[in-house]
């Protein structure tokens, strides 16, 4: 098991290097630092000196990959690539446009992001699996038909409308919770209820339908027929046999997103003014803060790869047929 995890870790290295090279190419080769300086400074302030100053402040005035003017090892390390890309591997993300340390900012903003994303994820999972079980239990009935129709209808509504509509109804018309904002400690729950609720409802359609298909795939398998044939009641067949076996495909889809919960949700956080990583990303995009976007891309892919690894490990835990040698 340990050997397997170690091998997976080694396998992750070339992928991270690929991500790193790709983002580096996107941010420094497609547009030269000069172009970015011109863009950031605006048309009025573009002078060669201003561009030089802008580049020097951010360390963009060095060569991309190889610095022939430096001596020894510094030829490879005193470059944009080493400073901006390689250092990400040790968690050094540099500074944002406002001069703050990005790594520090990420650490403080993870909390609020997780406070929204984790309850949304857990509650959404419970609700949609229960609904899917009900639909699968009453399969081919009117309840099932209209259930699926409402799932498709729910899927066809843009996530923006769930947030806009929910915020308007619950917070503005009914005045049950504050419209937006975030509090410290236990007091935060008042701000969390609505975004979590909206997140659950917005994801309900697609996940319920997906889990229903997974359950229905199990329903006609041989072991289920055997269970019925030996006289087990239908409820017992469902909860003891079908639910257990359907958990395997459900896990694949679910475990992989758990690490990504740290990243928060772009839309929810920006609408509700929650100081998490999602709103950090949106602010960075709007302010064209390239350093922050680059860091988020890197962290996102690290978390995704961790998710893939967790998925494989969770397989061994739930499915004794799978062994890693």
């Amino acid at each position: 098991m340990l050997a397997y995890i170690f091998r997976r870790l080694l396998y992750a290295v070339p992928i991270l290097i690929g991500v790193n090279l790709l983002t580096f190419a996107l941010f420094f080769v497609v547009n030269t630092p000069d172009d970015m300086a011109r863009m950031q400074l605006g048309v009025k302030h573009v002078t060669p000196e201003a561009i030089q100053k802008w580049k020097a402040e951010r360390g963009y005035d060095r060569p991309l990959f190889w610095n022939p003017e430096a001596a020894g090892l510094a030829r490879a390390t005193d470059t944009i690539f080493f400073d901006k890309s390689v250092r990400m591997f040790v968690g050094d993300f540099g500074r944002a446009e406002d001069g703050r340390d990005i790594a520090r900012e990420i650490r403080t903003r993870m909390g609020p992001s997780l406070a929204i994303a984790l309850p949304t994820f857990l509650l959404g999972l419970c609700v949609s699996i229960s609904l899917a079980l009900i639909l699968a239990f009453f399969r081919a009935s009117a309840l099932d038909f209209w259930g699926v129709v409402s799932c498709v209808a729910l899927m066809s509504i843009s996530g923006l409308f769930y947030i806009i509509g929910g915020q308007y109804l619950v917070a503005k018309v009914w005045k049950l919770v504050p419209i937006s904002g975030f509090g410290e400690g236990l007091d935060a729950w008042r701000f969390l209820v609505l975004p979590v609720l909206i997140g659950v409802v917005a994801g309900l359609g697609s996940s319920t339908r997906w889990y229903r298909t997974l359950f229905l795939e199990e329903v006609n398998k041989d072991y289920v027929r055997t269970a019925r044939a030996k006289g087990l009641p239908e409820t017992r067949v469902f909860f003891r046999h079908i639910l257990k076996n359907a958990m395997i495909p459900i896990l694949t889809g679910v475990v992989v997103v758990i690490p990504l919960l740290f990243m928060g949700s772009l839309l929810t956080e920006s609408f509700f003014g929650i100081p998490g990583l999602g709103s950090y990303t949106i602010d960075a995009i709007n302010a064209q803060d390239f350093a922050v976007v680059r860091s988020m891309v890197f962290i996102g892919s690290v978390l995704y790869i961790v998710g893939l690894m967790l998925t494989d490990i969770s397989y061994t835990l739930v499915d004794p047929r799978i062994r890693f040698e």
Partner: peptide
Amino acid sequence: VLNSIPGVLLIAAAVLMMQVLIDT
């Protein structure tokens, strides 16, 4: 590699760069 970058972020990075290209 492409898959492991969260979709919105990859699109955001590419679109930001395209904006710079168009604006300059």
